[in-house]
């Protein structure tokens, strides 16, 4: 999902950077002392998850845990993803520094959408498993679409890019759905306060 350096045009890169900066600013404002550790933890998880390859489907894809980040962090997913992407570019040569803004947006916006769309159902014990699966699944789908948009704004046709990326990421969507479902279920039992749930 990381767009490589040297593909996107300058306007796309700049607008990506601006949106990422605004999101990160809001995200940082929303982090209080209690939330710092969860944010750092999920940022590390995202950073490392990029190394876990999914050897299924046509492309070369890896885990991202965007849905999990969104559901657990809300707006704070922006700084968490930005830092993790920066470190991935630094250590693993994923993406690059010029495309950092665009990559942050294509992964954080889906996280935020998942937060607003599925969070009410995650707070409800009965609908929690289904809602968290949908969050994991939907996040990758949205991120694929946003990546395709970013590519289409430069030169590649939108449908061609979207088809390629979504086809490659279908296994990831299902795996992330399951991971999100189990992680949220586990945390709700063991550490409900990390999810800001009111009951144990």
């Amino acid at each position: 999902m990381h767009i490589s350096e040297g593909i996107l045009s300058a306007p796309v890169l700049i607008s990506g950077g601006v949106v990422a900066a605004i999101g990160t600013f809001i995200g940082l404002k929303k982090i209080d002392l209690e939330q710092i550790m969860p944010v750092a933890l999920l940022s590390s998880a995202f950073f490392v998850a990029g190394l876990v390859h999914v050897p299924l489907g046509p492309g070369s894809v890896h885990l991202m845990l965007i849905g999990l980040l969104g559901v657990m962090l809300g707006w704070a997913a922006f700084p968490a993803i930005l830092i993790a992407l920066f470190l991935q570019a630094l250590f693993f040569q994923f993406g690059g520094f010029a495309v950092l803004g665009v990559n942050t947006v294509t992964m954080s916006v889906p996280a935020l959408c998942c937060y607003y769309l599925t969070r009410p159902w995650i707070d409800n014990r009965k609908t929690r498993p289904a809602a968290s699966f949908i969050a994991g699944f939907l996040a990758i789908l949205l991120a694929s679409l946003l990546t395709a948009c970013a590519l289409a704004l430069t030169d590649t046709g939108f449908t061609a890019a979207a088809q390629l990326i979504i086809a490659a990421n279908v296994p990831v969507m299902i795996i992330e759905g399951c991971i999100t479902m189990f992680t949220v279920g586990f945390l709700a039992k063991v550490q409900p306060e990390i999810l800001h749930l009111e009951y144990a």
Partner: peptide, 8 residues
């Protein structure tokens, strides 16, 4: 270029 954002 693979068309899905990868480039080498």
């Amino acid at each position: 270029e693979t068309g899905d954002g990868h480039r080498g």
